[in-house]
């Protein structure tokens, strides 16, 4: 187990190095530089700036310099937001993204599993069709449409919530609902199908034959097995929500990390692009690792040994 984790982490570091290199060269290949605007500054000043940041040097030299700093864990300072280090950007923005992402995940796991169970237990009845209909809606409507609609109805029409900002507990409600729509729908469908499969398995019949109560069968035998696909899904999905809440953050005016990431690219804010890309990569990789480890706990049949466990 420990060996497995160490091995995984080494692979992660290797992947990060490859990713950092690829991002660096791709980024340098995009036309433009951080000092552009509608009004061009005089060439002499432009030149001073390029020299100041070493952009006049060959790309490979800049690359060696950057990787050198990276090894010292020096991610640098934003080129657009003066004196703001990459660490500061991550610290201030990530708190919001994590709060929203985790809350959205809790809500969607709870709601998704519940809906999935209702559907499975009412197989081919009205409630089944109804929850599946909701799930299809959830999967097919993009979250910015949901976010705008929620903002308009509950914020502007009903005035139950503030339309933007994250100043109090109530302010979390709308963005969290908007973010959890898609994963809820997805989890509901996953739970339903695996629940249906499990419920018709032989060991459930055995359990029933032994005269166990319906609840024990459902929770101890059926749900535990039926939840496996959900666990597989939850790890990467959490990472996706945390790293992909850009539009919902924009609509609700939340200063999360997504905003910085998108702006960094438009601004050619090289240090920020690199820092945030690597940070997001780490988050995604960690989510996979945790998922792998979680398997071992839920399903004893899965042993975390060399060459198994995915990722």
């Amino acid at each position: 187990m420990v060996r497995y984790v160490i091995e995984k982490i080494l692979y992660m570091l290797l992947s990060l190095f490859v990713l950092a290199s690829a991002t660096f060269f791709l980024m340098k290949a995009i036309p433009g530089n951080p000092f552009q605007s509608e009004k061009n500054i005089p060439p002499a000043i432009q030149q001073m700036l390029m020299e100041k940041y070493g952009f006049d040097k060959p790309v490979w030299e800049q690359y060696v310099h950057y990787i050198g700093n990276l090894l010292k864990l020096d991610f640098g300072t934003s080129m657009k937001q003066q004196y703001v280090t990459v660490e500061t950007v991550i610290k201030s923005g990530f708190a919001y993204s994590v709060q929203l992402g985790l809350l959205a995940m809790i809500v969607s796991v709870a709601a998704g599993v519940l809906l999935g169970l209702i559907a499975a237990l009412n197989h081919r009845k009205f409630l089944d069709g109804f929850t599946i209909f909701i799930a299809v809606l959830g999967v097919s409507i993009p979250n910015f449409v949901i976010a705008s609609a929620l903002q308009y109805f509950f914020g502007v029409q009903l005035r139950w919530f503030n339309v933007t900002g994250l100043n109090g507990p109530l302010d979390y409600v709308l963005p969290v609902i908007a973010l959890s729509f898609l994963p809820t729908a997805f989890i509901a469908r996953l739970t339903r199908s695996s629940m249906l499969e499990v419920l018709s398995a032989d060991y459930i019949k055995t359990a029933r034959a032994k005269g166990l109560s319906g609840r024990v069968i459902l929770v101890k035998h059926a749900l535990r097995n039926a939840i496996m696909p959900v666990v597989t899904y939850v790890g990467p999905m959490t990472a996706n929500i945390i790293t992909g809440s850009v539009i919902v953050e924009q609509i609700f005016g939340i200063g999360g990390l997504g905003k910085d990431f998108v702006n960094s690219i438009t601004n050619r804010d090289y240090t920020l692009i690199m820092g945030l890309t690597l940070f997001y990569a780490v988050i995604l990789m960690l989510a996979r690792l945790i998922t792998d480890i979680a398997y071992g706990f839920i399903d004893p049949r899965i042993k975390l040994i060399r060459g198994r466990g995915g990722a």
Binding site: Q99, L103, I106, V107, A110, A111, N162, G165, L166, N167, G168, P169, L170, D171, Y172, V173, V176
Partner: peptide, 15 residues
Amino acid sequence: FAIFTAGCATGAKNG
């Protein structure tokens, strides 16, 4: 409970 905790996550003062 999940929705409730979602609501209570951070206790900043209201705008």
